[in-house]
Amino acid sequence: MRATLREIVLGCRSLLVGMRVTMVEFFKPVVTVPYPHEALRMPERYRGPIELVRDPATGRAICYACQLCARACPSGCITVEGVKREGERRKRVTQYQLDFSLCSLCGACVEACPDAAIRFSKRYNWATPHKEEFLLDLVRQLEQESR
């Protein structure tokens, strides 16, 4: 009998304590962000779909189609092609295709590149019902940016 009473009293107390906690929290400021009206800034190291880096001296992509990134990629999402023009020491990238539908944003490509010719973008809210839209032509993307 005593034990039962004790349990009832303690039980009720625990419920009241819980409600107090809830009440206190109730008046604290909101912690969420009202996305999409407001969006968070991605941190410096955020890993978004990769993009080519421009060489400030020439205005073109740094990439010289050495294929190291394509070979490092575990999922085979990268296809790079380049041509060597006369009088130039290195190739120039002509096509850089990324199949983002396969990419796991692991970063192996970025780490493999000897000249930091690719980097992660900060793009994160990206969805599409069409798989083909994830086939990216990074060279064209870079050209469009300059226009």
Partner: peptide, 19 residues
């Protein structure tokens, strides 16, 4: 996320250290 660039799939350690 600030140090690894990812919120869940960190993949932060490397052979012989961290990224």
């Amino acid at each position: 996320e600030a140090i690894t660039g990812s919120r869940l799939t960190y993949c932060y350690y490397r052979f012989g250290g961290v990224c």
